[in-house]
């Protein structure tokens, strides 16, 4: 734990704390929505700790509240969480081994992955991932508990603009990576694919559809490889 403390500087700690706080505030609205939809107070808290993936939990609560079947709610939630498979392929080294690795795996989410990617070098990636992950593991269920207690008082969180927080956080953290031209182009194409398919596909799928833009990135990388005279045939 001490090494984790020293690996990150003050600015990074502040950024991570802020993201955890933002997650806690979104948790407020999640807990409030759940209890006003007829769930017991402990349900969003327990689900928050065990599922630990915000958008799938909002969707689950929404489907059950609308009278949908529990099976439909599970399938929709799993679809939304399917992006964790490519996330896990991208950041395996930060997770740790053995039983610690299992906790590290549970901590995988949008914020921890983006924080890990944004850091230079494995020790800092690992420290940022764990600090952000443990913070969210505390703040998300705690926010849900507080929201469930306050109930309808915090129901209209849109009036406070809280729905703009999550996209702004992720955007700020991926901006440095988007300086790379081929990655920016590929991401932009992926964004277009996701936005267009949102009109007719169920939640979760549009984000995965964005991966169809990846050949743009491989094509650019392959061209570069050819320029440097490396072997372009051997792939995967």
């Amino acid at each position: 734990m001490r090494s984790l403390w020293k690996t990150l500087d003050r600015t990074q700690w502040r950024d991570i704390a802020l993201v955890c706080l933002a997650v806690g505030v979104i948790g407020l609205s999640y807990g409030a929505i759940a209890v006003t939809s007829g769930f017991a107070w402990w349900f969003p808290v327990l689900m928050g700790a065990l599922v630990l993936a915000a958008s799938s939990e909002f969707l689950f609560v929404g489907i059950i509240a609308a009278g949908g079947s529990p099976i439909a709610a599970v399938l929709a939630g799993l679809l939304v969480n399917a992006r964790h498979v490519p996330f896990g392929l991208a950041v395996p080294d930060v997770l740790g081994r053995g039983w610690k690795g299992l906790i590290g795996t549970h901590l995988m989410n949008d914020e921890t992955v983006v924080f890990a990617i944004a850091q230079d070098g494995l020790p800092r990636k690992r420290a940022a991932y764990w600090a952000c992950g443990l913070g969210i593991l505390i703040c998300w269920p705690a926010g849900a508990a507080l929201g469930a207690l306050l109930g309808s008082v915090v129901h209209d969180t849109d009036a406070l603009g809280l729905d703009a927080m999550f996209p702004a956080v992720i955007l700020a953290l991926i901006l440095p990576a988007l300086k790379q031209r081929e990655l920016r182009r590929t991401s932009l194409a992926g964004v277009v694919l996701a936005l267009v398919s949102t009109a007719f596909l169920p939640a979760g799928l549009p984000v995965l559809i964005a991966l169809a833009a990846l050949p743009l990135f491989t094509a650019a990388a392959a061209t570069q490889g050819a320029d440097q005279g490396t072997d372009r045939g051997a792939d995967r």
């Binding site: 392929l89 992955v113 991401s187 964004v191 996701a194 995965l208 833009a213």
Partner: peptide, 16 residues
């Protein structure tokens, strides 16, 4: 490519 795919996913997530 795998790291790029995470960025593409996160960009699409931000936009949606």
């Amino acid at each position: 490519l795998l790291e790029a795919s995470a960025i593409v996913l996160l960009a699409a997530l931000t936009a949606t």
